[in-house]
Amino acid sequence: MMIIALSKDIMQIIREQDVVPFRNRVKENAVKIKMSLLNQTKLITAASELVRNMLKYAGGGQTIIEIITKERLTGIRLTFADQGPGIPDIQQAMKDGYSTGKSLGLGLPGAKRLVNEFAITSEKGKGTTVIIIKWTNG
């Protein structure tokens, strides 16, 4: 049941222009493990939502792209870690249509729907970390 990381790619996101190279890097990794086009699209879309949140609410942060295996599964794990203000009420932030900004409020719940595993931890004043996993055939 253990997850083993086969490769690890770290990217800093500080400006909006960093988003496109980041998305491309995610895609390269997904192509490497022969993820279907649909799953690639879902993963990259989820990544795009999360990276935008990081830029908007925390002024950027660090992303980690990993190729992982668990038993017979292969997939991509993405980590988004920021040192922003944190999310006071995660349950509320995970609801569709909730936004403190002027967005549609689809970012977090939408991203969760697009991936196989989604974990979020946040501490007020310290930052937020979101980890998502998309399996090749998930």
């Binding site: 649909l38 699209t41 879902k42 569709d96 549609l104 939408g110 729907r113 697009l114």
Partner: peptide, 14 residues
């Protein structure tokens, strides 16, 4: 629109 994009948009909730 690419089919994969259409599917993703609906799952995203848009």
């Amino acid at each position: 629109m690419q089919p994969a994009v259409a599917i993703t948009l609906i799952e995203l909730g848009l």
